[in-house]
Amino acid sequence: MYALTVLDHSALAVFRREHPWLEFPDAILEVCIYFDDNGGPTRLTALEESSDGKAMPADVNRFGIDTVLSLIRYAPQGTAEVEECPEERTVWALLESLPVADGIRPLDDVEAERATALQGAYETLHGIALDKLRALRDAARSPREMQRLSDAVASLPALLEQVDEAHKSSFIEVDLWRLVAVLRDELSMPADYEMMASGEDRLPSRETIEMAETNAMSGPVIQALFELSPVAFSISSIGQKSSRYVRVNQAYLDLVGKTWDEIRGSEMVASGVVSGSEVRAERLMLLDRDGGYAGMRGEIRHSSGEVVPVMISARRISVAGQLYDFEVLQRASDD
């Protein structure tokens, strides 16, 4: 879903009165400003009145930089809305239905099935990206811009496994990178096992915990990240009452004053480290609704009893169809 602010006809009338030097066209009926997950503006669209009185898309490129910046600054005066993204629903539905290794089927078969499903989802996004880039190319005003977009179309990889940072800008331009990145990251991760067979309160076996930990950490990049980073990381199963530690790094253990054996597989609140507060419930709601959040304040409890203020950023990730919460914690000031 996309967060956006809508400046309707009434809001734009006030905007024109407060910014007369911009000579903002009277024909513009509505302006929409879209924002990314960090609250930064990503794109701007507008509707204008045609000669027959109907609303039609306007060319925002003719507004000029001063007008665009003024509209962005004026965005708080508009109406905040959320726009559904069909592609996003499709991707998240796929991630939730990916096959999970069960210890019976050969792991290679599970991985092959996962790869096929992820490639299928990518092909859908790839087709949408090509259509949007071609539309931009056809509307380009200069040969140089037309050539740039033609190169972007030609360089877009057909296979998910070929996607890398060099293609990021092309997908960003058509607002699809965040979805492509999710698929790419999922493809790089191995399949693992369900943490819990049934019921939120059922305690997973030590063998199940070890299997989830092994699979979650089997990627060399993830392993190196956990071992070398001075920032506290944790991976846990999802749920307000059933979230259990799957893996943490040494920086996390240092922050809470615990050893891994003390919290391994423990329910996070029951471990005494995590506070089961309304603030945590809000963070979990954001993970359920948006798939993540950034820079939210929280508290954890050190083994000494000290309450440690922290800033937490998190993302819900899918490993072989099993969802986990990946958290990054940094000690916050007491201000």
Results as ranks from 00 to 15, higher is better:
253 L>Q: 14
161 E>H: 12
242 S>K: 10
312 I>R: 13
159 L>A: 12
228 L>V: 06
287 L>M: 10
193 Y>N: 07
267 E>I: 04
99 P>A: 06
97 S>Y: 01
86 P>G: 14
264 R>H: 06
255 L>I: 11
229 S>C: 00
136 L>I: 00
262 E>A: 12
92 W>V: 06
260 W>I: 11
48 E>A: 14
179 L>M: 03
40 G>N: 14
33 I>M: 01
62 R>E: 14
215 N>H: 08
294 A>M: 07
194 E>D: 15
306 E>F: 03
171 F>C: 14
34 Y>T: 10
301 R>T: 15
229 S>R: 03
138 D>E: 15
219 G>A: 06
79 T>V: 11
258 K>Q: 12
208 T>Y: 03
214 T>H: 09
77 Q>F: 04
321 G>V: 11
64 G>R: 11
273 V>F: 00
276 G>D: 10
110 V>M: 05
300 I>W: 07
318 S>F: 04
101 A>P: 06
32 C>K: 14
317 I>L: 07
268 M>A: 04
267 E>K: 10
302 H>D: 10
225 L>H: 02
287 L>Y: 04
16 R>Q: 07
51 S>Q: 13
325 D>W: 04
295 G>R: 09
100 V>D: 09
126 H>Q: 11
289 R>T: 11
103 G>F: 11
66 D>M: 14
59 D>P: 03
63 F>M: 13
14 V>C: 01
297 R>A: 15
335 D>L: 15
155 S>L: 12
20 P>C: 05
165 E>T: 13
191 A>F: 03
314 A>H: 05
261 D>K: 15
297 R>Y: 05
130 L>Y: 04
137 R>T: 04
116 T>A: 15
246 V>N: 01
96 E>G: 10
236 S>L: 08
305 G>D: 15
272 G>C: 11
55 A>P: 15
29 L>H: 13
123 E>A: 09
117 A>N: 06
146 M>S: 11
10 S>F: 05
300 I>P: 02
115 A>D: 08
197 A>Q: 14
6 V>N: 01
236 S>H: 13
170 S>G: 00
54 K>S: 08
137 R>A: 13
105 R>M: 11
159 L>K: 12
93 A>V: 01
184 R>K: 13
265 G>E: 07
276 G>M: 08
167 H>R: 07
62 R>S: 13
280 R>K: 11
144 R>L: 02
73 R>D: 01
257 G>P: 07
251 A>E: 07
169 S>T: 14
220 P>Q: 09
110 V>I: 14
185 D>F: 07
217 M>H: 02
129 A>E: 05
85 C>P: 01
83 E>Q: 09
76 P>E: 14
12 L>T: 03
329 L>N: 02
145 E>R: 07
276 G>E: 08
305 G>W: 12
178 R>Q: 07
306 E>W: 04
68 V>E: 05
204 P>T: 01
253 L>C: 13
10 S>V: 13
106 P>S: 12
171 F>Y: 14
243 S>T: 02
115 A>V: 06
229 S>Q: 00
14 V>F: 01
6 V>D: 04
129 A>Q: 04
224 A>P: 01
131 D>L: 06
139 A>C: 03
163 V>Q: 07
25 P>R: 03
200 E>C: 01
206 R>E: 15
33 I>H: 06
334 D>T: 11
189 M>N: 04
72 I>Y: 04
202 R>I: 05
22 L>M: 04
124 T>F: 12
165 E>F: 04
8 D>Y: 10
111 E>T: 12
213 E>P: 00
236 S>V: 08
44 L>V: 08
